[in-house]
């Protein structure tokens, strides 16, 4: 059973629909206690980092996610959920969960022909092998929609990268936490396979 953290951060039902389609049981919750007791957690999110952090702190979900992480519960962060696990975000200059050292930065593109947000299908290149990235081949593409990207301080947390004007971190993690800047739930068969692997993942990075 996957517990999807529901904190009014956009398209949560699309994650649930994708889980349904591949036969993974899932539930949405706003209850911090349910997060701490979860078997596995998906931490999604679309929207603004500052307002998301405010909601997470007010509801007690911020503490619950950190507790779940230190308890060793497998966690999958998606999009905004891959950004606010870092120490802070340039979006609204806000302190975040700080589970991984680093900063979420805005694309500052000198090349005017590159458009922001970075929206569409782009290649995800595996930098460090990880069970959730098993089977991804050179050239495999996933769906992105974002204007900010996670920038971990230590490259040991950078599992995959993508090029858009510059090379940026498109998948990161630590121990039982894996997070993707792209949307597995909108990335066709290859994305659904990541969800399936997450549903079977024991929470060890190798």
């Amino acid at each position: 059973m996957i517990t999807i953290v529901d904190y009014n951060a956009g398209n949560l039902r699309s994650v649930k629909r994708a889980c349904d389609a591949v036969g993974i049981g899932s539930e949405l919750t706003q209850d911090p206690e349910a997060v701490i007791r979860a078997e596995r957690i998906v931490f999604p999110g679309v929207g603004n980092a500052a307002s998301a952090m405010r909601t997470l702190e007010e509801t007690g979900l911020a503490e619950a996610i950190k507790t779940a992480f230190y308890k060793g519960i497998p966690i999958l962060g998606i999009c905004l959920g891959a950004q606010i696990i870092l120490e802070r975000s340039e979006e609204g200059e806000v302190f975040c969960l700080g589970v991984i050292r680093g900063v979420t930065r805005r694309f500052a593109l000198k090349n005017k022909t590159l458009k922001i947000p970075h929206m569409g299908w782009n290649e995800v290149r595996v930098e460090i092998d990880h069970p959730l990235l098993n089977g991804i081949q050179t050239g495999d593409e996933f769906y992105f929609v974002h204007s900010y990207f996670p920038d971990p301080a230590d490259p040991i947390h950078i599992y995959a990268t993508t090029d858009y004007g510059r090379r940026f971190c498109s998948a990161l993690g630590k121990d039982n936490l894996f997070a993707a800047q792209f949307h597995p739930e909108k990335s066709g068969r290859l994305g659904l396979e990541i969800l399936k692997r997450f549903a079977a993942w024991e929470g060890s990075p190798c």
């Binding site: 699309s14 629909r17 994708a18 349904d20 389609a21 769906y143 929609v145 739930e185 909108k186 990335s187 066709g188 068969r189 994305g191 659904l192």
Partner: peptide
């Protein structure tokens, strides 16, 4: 459609 296709 949303329950059957997983692209935007």
């Amino acid at each position: 459609v949303a329950s059957q296709i997983f692209i935007p």
